[in-house]
Simulated scan of single mutants.
Amino acid sequence: MKKFLTFSAIAIAIIVVLAGTLFFFMRKQTKSYSPEESATYADGDLKIDVIYNRPFKKNRDVFGALVPFDTVWRTGANEATTFETTKELKFDGKTLPKGKYSLWTIPRKDSWTIIFNSEFGQWGVNFEGQANRDAARDVLKFDVPVLASPQPIEQFTISFEKTGEDAEMVLIWDTTLVAAPFSY
Rank of each mutant, 00 (worst) to 15 (best):
A148C: 04
I14Q: 01
Y41P: 06
D110A: 13
L66H: 03
S149T: 12
A167G: 09
T71Y: 11
D174C: 06
A167R: 05
G129Y: 07
V16K: 00
E88M: 11
S111R: 09
V144D: 11
S159F: 01
Q122V: 08
F23M: 11
R60C: 02
I15W: 09
A9N: 00
I153V: 15
W112N: 07
K94Q: 15
Y101A: 06
L5I: 07
S34C: 03
N132G: 05
F56G: 03
R54D: 02
E165F: 06
E88L: 03
R60E: 02
D45R: 11
V62A: 01
G20W: 12
S102K: 07
P68C: 04
M26Y: 09
E37S: 14
V17T: 10
Y41C: 06
N78E: 14
E84G: 13
V67Y: 03
Y184C: 02
Q130H: 06
G76S: 13
E161Y: 01
L5H: 07
W173N: 04
F127N: 10
T71C: 01
S149P: 14
P181S: 15
A39F: 06
L177K: 11
L96E: 02
L177I: 01
N117R: 01
E128Q: 14
F160H: 06
K100V: 04
I153P: 00
A80M: 02
D110F: 07
V146Q: 10
F83V: 05
I15R: 03
E36I: 04
N132M: 05
E79G: 08
D138T: 06
Q29C: 00
F182L: 10
A65F: 09
P152E: 15
V50H: 08
A180F: 09
K2A: 12
S34R: 00
G20A: 15
I153K: 14
G124R: 07
V16P: 00
S183Y: 02
F24P: 07
A9Q: 00
G93T: 02
M26Q: 13
D110V: 05
E84M: 09
K47L: 04
